[in-house]
Nucleic acid binder design. Sequence first.
DNA 1: TTGACAAGTAAACGCTCGTTTACTATAATG
DNA 2: CATTATAGTAAACGAGCGTTTACTTGTCAA
Lengths: 218, 218
Amino acid sequence: MSDTKERILITALHLFASDGYEAVSVSAIAGQLGITKGALYRHYKSKRDIFDRIVEKMYQLDAARSRQYQVPEDTYAAAPAAYRAVSIQSIRAFTLAQFSFWTQDAFASDFRRMLALEQYRNAEMAALYSQCIVSGPAAYMKDVFREMILDGTLREADPELLAGAYYAPVFWLIQVADHCADHRKLQERLSRHIEAFFAEYARIDCHTETEPSVSEKE
Amino acid sequence: MSDTKERILITALHLFASDGYEAVSVSAIAGQLGITKGALYRHYKSKRDIFDRIVEKMYQLDAARSRQYQVPEDTYAAAPAAYRAVSIQSIRAFTLAQFSFWTQDAFASDFRRMLALEQYRNAEMAALYSQCIVSGPAAYMKDVFREMILDGTLREADPELLAGAYYAPVFWLIQVADHCADHRKLQERLSRHIEAFFAEYARIDCHTETEPSVSEKE
DNA sequence: TTGACAAGTAAACGCTCGTTTACTATAATG
DNA sequence: CATTATAGTAAACGAGCGTTTACTTGTCAA
């Protein structure tokens, strides 16, 4: 039993993430590993096969993470109960974890970049990119915030606008991280964003300047 | 005098924006135009030459737009005077124009996508992408907002946080637009974001509609 | 009318691509 | 020990790559 198969996967993903699938040759992958391309074909039946196994592995990783963080895999429409009683604390923790995952985790970071490079020529990659990184998280936050407004955790506002205001800076900082080595700084910046957001929109908090926070709705 | 040279440029950019530079063959560019690749070499001396001319053209377009919108080409440190007396109105107009430019203008939209596809293997593209789309606009807004806080247009806040809160949703909506056909909807969503932002942070809390006629609050 | 030039075709160049084949070394198994 | 499987090399395959060359047009000024 060898780990060569796994090393091929990781190395190929890393190259795909830099140059894009088409621009990476099988020789380049093999060369990086110090083997010949003939050896590579002992483990995968084609270049496309490597790509497919990468995607397969990411699906598994993502499913495992969803379970770990108890994020509902169904949409709000399918399972609204799962979106109730979500605390600000858990939202904050999940957001910070997601940021580190997509910027620091080697596999996830490479996979995200590869998705970005393939999004305009591969419909499945486009859908996956949108779902994991662009629109999906915002749609999720919209459902969570709608419930938080209903149960009084957040003040009255348009959930969609709120979700954009919350998630867009996360998304933006992920892209900034691609060309900024100082991860600590960006992580702190993200924390400040989250604090400022909830200071602004949480109903019961120190924020009482513009509106009295309790007992106005009758 | 022919327009073939220009048509090659546009067609090549469009293909580069979908598949990335390496994945597009000279034959494919020529084929799309209904000519042979030999003819293409009458107008450009290499495939890389086409790429370079595209970048050159974008530099020219960008400089022209900067002049048109009176956006300072110097940094704040080099020319602080240019950042004073910027109105909320002009910020709003410029932001909406930038959004339409990067999502609707054929050349700019294709160029932005090409930058995104080349950002991890080409340092110049990475810098350009960051400067035009990711970090640059936020850095600009940070300088503008710092001045706006000083002159009392905006309430006291961290300019950097403010710039992120303002620009990140613009950036995010640009990416959303890549896989959402309904541009009108996104444009409206952007408008709502801008209104909500200034409603939240503008000091003189008149909900400045498109025409600031009379202040309703003393 | 002629000659230069601009724009395009078709074919070939050397090279690299993804993939296949024939063969080798090593180690475990009966 | 003989067998079988595994993991690798080296070379070849046809196809397509970016680029060059030789040749064919059409246009237009001298």
